[in-house]
Design a protein around this nucleic acid. Structure first.
Lengths: 174, 174
DNA sequence: TAATATTATGTAATTAATTACATGTTTTAA
DNA sequence: TTAAAACATGTAATTAATTACATAATATTA
């Protein structure tokens, strides 16, 4: 296969939480989960069809206005099993396809001026990201109650923040 | 495009360092750079052809034994320019397609037992990786001279180690 | 010297993902 | 009320990447 098709599991996870249309799923990649995963509607709609054919999903129709009929997808028992099977299988370590790290690998001789520009620029990007993540954490998880309610999401944000903090510190050193 | 085709730049970078055959390039993904990037020979050979057609590479032929003729690729001026242009352009932030984080996102209600198994397993993987990285650092960069000689590679290893250390600490907290 | 492993170079089939093309409905705001 | 924005659902073309298929020369080792 070309890629792992983990989108399948994301769709299952999102639909287990709440039945949704393809459009809804597409939207959720613009916010929330979009922070660490991406997908286009042109990938989602055909996949929903394939997953339904494979017996992982089903849909009912929701009338909107006079003419429009939305397809609301939900997860079948088979789909639920598939999702929990995935949750329980070991997760391979990802070897970080970070383009900046790749460039750094090729900077053989310190090339001082170029390196400084590269690092400064990257530092700004990561600092901005870190600020954004901190703002999100404050916005979405102001109370400890909300933290335990969506524990995974909370820990994920925390992880992202730690990672960015680390990255910024490391860049600072160079 | 489907992906960013950063492999093109990796090939340029490796060939600028030293002219090599497609086979050599393939090998270097089994060690060294394979630590943080991967590519198969079936991707490399056609790409080398396309890059040569595009004027980024050229090759000469090296006779080996009686019959075998190897193609040794090197980078043209155009290829060098393309590579340095890439080095200087800003690097987009990667939003970490980490499968474990993805799973964690969907663990809504702490599901204590499953979560513990997942975290313990992942912790072991990252700890093993961390040990391996530390061993590599000690092996490849025993002296400060070697650290400055391949500064990028050294910093990359250091970064990977910091990242794993961080990941292990964060997993420990959960 | 014969078997095996490694070197060496490709192509084919399949799947995944991005960008662009395409169309129509409903809601909101000027 | 009409124009614009958002909702809603697809297909087509292209590129990237993985797995499998395919072949042959050279070096190593038993």
């Amino acid at each position: 296969m070309a890629q792992k098709n983990r989108l399948k599991y994301i769709i299952l996870g999102l639909l287990i939480d709440r039945p949704q249309t393809g459009y809804d799923l597409t939207k959720s990649f613009d916010s929330d989960i979009g922070e660490f995963w991406s997908a286009n509607h042109s990938q989602i709609y055909p996949l929903l069809n394939r997953m339904e054919t494979a017996g992982l999903l089903q849909h009912d129709q929701v009338q909107v206005g006079e003419k429009l009929v939305k397809k609301r997808y939900s997860v079948t028992d088979t789909g639920q099993q598939e999702f929990f099977r995935w949750l329980q299988e070991p997760s391979p370590l990802d070897n970080a396809h970070d383009e900046f790290l790749l460039k750094l690998y090729f900077v053989k001789d310190q090339h001082a001026d170029l390196l400084r520009v590269m690092v400064t620029e990257q530092l700004a990007l990561h600092q901005a990201k870190l600020d954004n993540l901190n703002a999100q954490l404050a916005d979405k998880f102001p109370t400890t109650q909300q933290q335990t309610q969506s524990y995974g999401h909370y820990q994920l944000l925390r992880h992202a923040i730690l990672r960015e903090r680390d990255y910024v510190a490391w860049l600072g050193e160079i």
